[in-house]
């Protein structure tokens, strides 16, 4: 393989050498901006929303997460420590079953994953979980 190890690790978000060359990690302001864009600055309660993510992710390239918020109109997922905090926004339509979804995300390093749900009455719910991301190792 001619491609250097660095490039070979999925996106630049996770690399054994990310330590040395990582692009700017999302600042606290960047995260807050992203959240406010969704919530308009409103407070978020912590009940009625579930976020399931591994405590330790085997590889930051592919971290499985699950989120559920019964009755929510949409759920936004953020990664507090990524170069850009937005991960995805799931909008539920009239034919949606349980208002839940699973997906696989990239995490640049140990950080909090945040899920914010917007409810039909304009209120918000928030769940947060810390995920440790293992990087570096012979195979890694």
């Amino acid at each position: 393989m001619d491609v250097s190890r660095r490039q070979f690790v999925g996106t630049g978000l996770v690399a054994a050498a990310a330590f040395f060359g990582l692009p700017k990690i999302a600042s606290a302001e960047g995260l807050e901006e992203a959240i406010n864009a969704f919530t308009g600055g409103a407070d978020a309660a912590s009940d009625g929303i579930t976020l399931i993510a591994p405590e330790i992710a085997e590889n930051g390239n592919t971290v499985p997460i699950e989120v559920e918020a019964p009755g929510a109109e949409s759920i936004m997922i953020l990664a507090a420590g990524n170069p850009s905090p937005d991960v995805c926004t799931i909008n539920f339509g009239p034919a949606a079953g349980r208002h839940a979804a699973s997906t696989r995300i990239r995490l640049a390093g140990e950080q909090d994953v945040i899920a914010i749900a917007r409810m039909p009455d304009g209120s918000f719910k928030q769940a947060r979980q810390n995920v440790r991301v293992t990087i570096g190792g012979c195979g890694g």
């Binding site: 996106t11 390239n61 995805c88 949606a96 990239r106």
Partner: peptide, 10 residues
Amino acid sequence: VDVTLEPAIS
């Protein structure tokens, strides 16, 4: 569903 994806999706 209607999902907006960002580069952080695997």
